[in-house]
Nucleic acid binder design. Structure first.
Lengths: 226, 226
DNA sequence: ATTTCTTGGATTGTTGACAATATGAAAGGA
DNA sequence: TCCTTTCATATTGTCAACAATCCAAGAAAT
């Protein structure tokens, strides 16, 4: 008799999720001061769970808190965003290498199928930057998981990606980029399928480096406001 | 009139520090179940702040929590500890590279002075593994900070180092290693002083890789119990 | 007019009581 | 004897009131 899986999401977890998505989606703008009572009213919760969630978010670096003075959504400067990509470069490079060594054949097949669906997505939803970004996120998510490196996946999925996603909503990918990015994804998966960890690492690093340079260009051209 | 610097460490911060050091020092063994009330009594605090601290520690991966079933100190397996070093390798490699580009001359001079004091420490305190380990920690700490990469330093200092230190107390460094490690530190600093980021990255990666292999050897020889 | 000091208000930090849930022991049946 | 089920207890999750602290508006003085 299977007990009903007890998905006992505690209220604090609920608050945590709500807040995290609110921050990522930009409903709470960076730098904005947010009061605890506002949040309680907004999510129909009491202060206890909300406070616990705030503590967790703070220690993950999404919020900054000053005693008795409230919490603010962290505001990442342009320079810091670029630094984030430098970190991604080395960490995801490692993830790709380990994924090449450890992913199952089934996982690799699924990953290739995912890329196919991304391709149709790009063609159909021309200009729908949001879904393209989600596809990109999906790709990187699978490789992080495929590395079988618990802590690495935790740091990528639990920390870095959320900070990057905060800015996805402002950084519409430039017109030519999605196609190129998909091609890069394909080559990375090829390397993984051939179990060539070294190559997978190299290609992933180059892929993220290209994304970083793309952002850098936009910042120089003043297409982004911080 | 300077107001007395208001070091208003909130109770939750206090609880956080107490718990973190207790975990790192091994006073709370990995896998051990810890009750909230025990902690309150132990640190003379009430459950509110303690709970908040537990939440933060959990999201940093030092604790694992199951709803209504209490929290346990995370127990890292041998394999996971080695994976941790793989992450350190790439992240600290990046830190060394950026440190070579960005540390001030003064910081580099201080770092060299630190190594001198480590040298006397190793000679005098022969076998005092603890202080040698602290010296090693100091070295890596300075480079992480010197990278001027806020998030990178945060991840290294706030996450990885605490997990590694948890096991420093069990992994007494093998007899020959401290001297060799000091030599490696010296060469890394040399590269930084010459502003050769590429070389600094390479040497740091090799340094951490050597430390990992050292641990791997000990595990094979059954000198470590997990 | 500008600066400093004071004070009221609002917000955060903390506390102890209350409700919900998992763990483990005891009882019953196979 | 072993397994399943039930129930009591202890522990965790949640709540609402209380205390401590910061912030901003306004008054006083230079």
């Amino acid at each position: 008799m299977n007990a009903p899986v007890t998905i006992t999401q505690t209220r604090a977890d609920e608050a945590f999720d709500c807040l995290q998505t609110a921050i990522v989606k930009g409903e709470l703008a960076p730098g904005e001061k947010i009061g605890e009572l506002d949040l309680c009213e907004r999510f129909n919760l009491t202060r206890g769970p909300v406070r616990e969630a705030l503590g967790r978010l703070e220690s993950r670096g999404l919020l900054v808190r000053r005693p008795h003075a409230g919490v603010r959504v962290v505001s990442v400067s342009a320079a810091e965003l670029l630094e984030l990509y430098r970190i991604r470069e080395v960490m995801e490079g490692l993830a790709a290498r380990q994924a090449a060594e450890r992913m199952t054949d089934q996982e690799i097949a699924d990953l290739q199928a995912t890329l196919d669906s991304h391709e149709t997505m790009i063609e159909e939803a021309r200009g729908q930057a949001y879904y393209q970004a989600e596809g990109d996120y999906d790709f990187h998510h699978r490789i992080a998981t495929g590395s079988r490196n618990t802590k690495l996946a935790q740091m990528l999925l639990g920390d870095l990606y959320y900070m990057v996603r905060m800015y996805r909503y402002r950084l519409s990918t430039s017109s030519g980029r999605p196609h190129r990015a998909l091609g890069e994804h394909r080559r990375i998966v090829e390397a993984i399928a051939q179990r060539d960890g070294e190559l997978a690492e190299f290609l992933m690093k180059r892929h993220i480096n290209a994304a970083r340079q793309n952002i850098e260009r936009k910042i120089e051209q003043g297409e982004i406001s911080f």
